[in-house]
Design a protein around this nucleic acid. Structure first.
Lengths: 233, 233
DNA sequence: GCAAAAGTGTTTCCTTTACACCCATGG
DNA sequence: CCATGGGTGTAAAGGAAACACTTTTGC
């Protein structure tokens, strides 16, 4: 039989938004073994016996950070021969295939675990260095997916607290999509008109200025918009 | 080491549009071996040594049909344990993982090969039977992707001839997306305004009625719209 | 009172949608 | 000449973009 034998790896592109600093972050680990020792790379692992792909992605995520809420979805599968230097040169030995996952986690609650010597840290997406393997490519793909998802899926609410102000929401959007999209005032009216944000009437004051209303995302009211194109811009 | 060992399969969701009959078709094969013998399934194969995933997808496609033009892209990777009955019950033997690809081919030129006893035939997408493995799920996913792609990518031109009428184009769109989208007149003006369809001034007459202009897709003029959201609706 | 942040409203412009209508050809 | 399909134009409605203005708080 001339079928290829594979080990399957899972690589996670884990994003988070630091609203205070207005920065989009991605989690990287410094490799402690070959190949690419001492280079930054996406947190990844090889799939174990009896473990599903997604369970594997969850496991590596749980090893690096402790989170209460996250959004996780499969990205892409990279699997040509020669993509991993551990393969034998003629690729007639074991092949390494990578299924990448894309995650979005709450920054405030994401505690970095086992962070001895800063081997696992957040990096500003626009300033990531050269990564091991083909991870720069995977990251670029994930970044693109993140921006698309944000526009037509309610993933922002996955990383916002239960109650949030409209400015909190705006910060998430403008941090990820960049400054060149709708201004705050138009963003407000569009979202409120859609009707899936519930004003709880509770007010919160943050320093000077008028106190803001706290809103809640109503998943049921959002249902009609599922799969519909471009809810926000 | 408790890492899982994988064989990697590739399953193709191959779509085609029969404009005459106004039907969207998907290519299915009748399985001639176990598991799921005599059931319909997506054409698939296992990846060979030294073969990339995409090359594997191309190979199975070339075995079933001969085409001159096609669009091919990766869909999704299904890889939980227990998805393939060939796996040992406790999944501690070899695992089977499926990377699915999605293709769109020209109907007129797609000659079905090795079609002894109609083991490989086109099926109307809305009427596919129960398939082997998790292939109904993969097909549903591919169908969704096809509709999305059509709205913001120029994949329709991949399966149209070099020169086509605006009605030919409209037929592709309405066949795939269903009847409930823009009428022909508005479809015309929107696309022409975008400026990447070149009127060759050549006319073609098909029975009664005014002869139609033949148009050409200008890839360079389309470039600015790449990745931009919703060019058509 | 004044700066700062939240929230509302208005004006302009552009796109979408639903049609009506004209044009060129075969039979 | 009329049915058939190709092609153009337009009026009404709706949404996006820019920005001015009001409200409510801290200091």
């Amino acid at each position: 039989m001339n079928l290829a034998d594979f080990k399957v790896g899972v690589d996670n592109v884990i994003f988070s938004v630091d609203s205070q600093e207005h920065r989009l972050l991605v989690l990287l680990v410094k490799r402690e073994e070959n190949p690419f020792i001492n280079q930054w790379s996406l947190p990844g692992t090889l799939v174990r016996k009896g473990e599903s792909l997604e369970a594997s992605a969850q496991r590596i995520l749980a090893e690096k950070i402790r989170v209460n809420n996250l959004y996780l979805e499969q990205l892409y599968t990279f699997g040509g021969p020669h993509r991993d230097p551990r393969e034998s040169p003629d690729s007639f030995g074991v092949r390494y295939l990578s299924v990448s996952y894309f995650a979005l986690v709450r920054f405030e609650e994401a505690q970095l675990l086992s962070n001895n010597n800063h081997k696992t840290t957040w990096h500003i997406v626009q300033e990531v260095p050269q990564l091991g393997f083909d991870h720069n490519e995977i990251l670029a793909y994930g970044y693109q997916r993140l921006r698309n998802k944000l526009e037509y899926s309610p993933i922002a609410f996955e990383i916002l607290p239960e109650l949030f102000t409209l400015n909190d929401l705006y910060q998430v959007y403008s941090t990820i999509l960049g400054e060149n999209f709708a201004d705050y005032s138009n963003f407000r009216s569009r979202l409120l008109k859609l009707g899936f944000l519930i004003d709880t009437e509770k007010k919160v004051s943050r320093g000077a200025g008028r106190p803001a209303s706290l809103y809640r995302f109503d998943a049921e009211a959002f249902a009609p918009f599922k799969d519909k194109p471009f809810v926000f811009v």
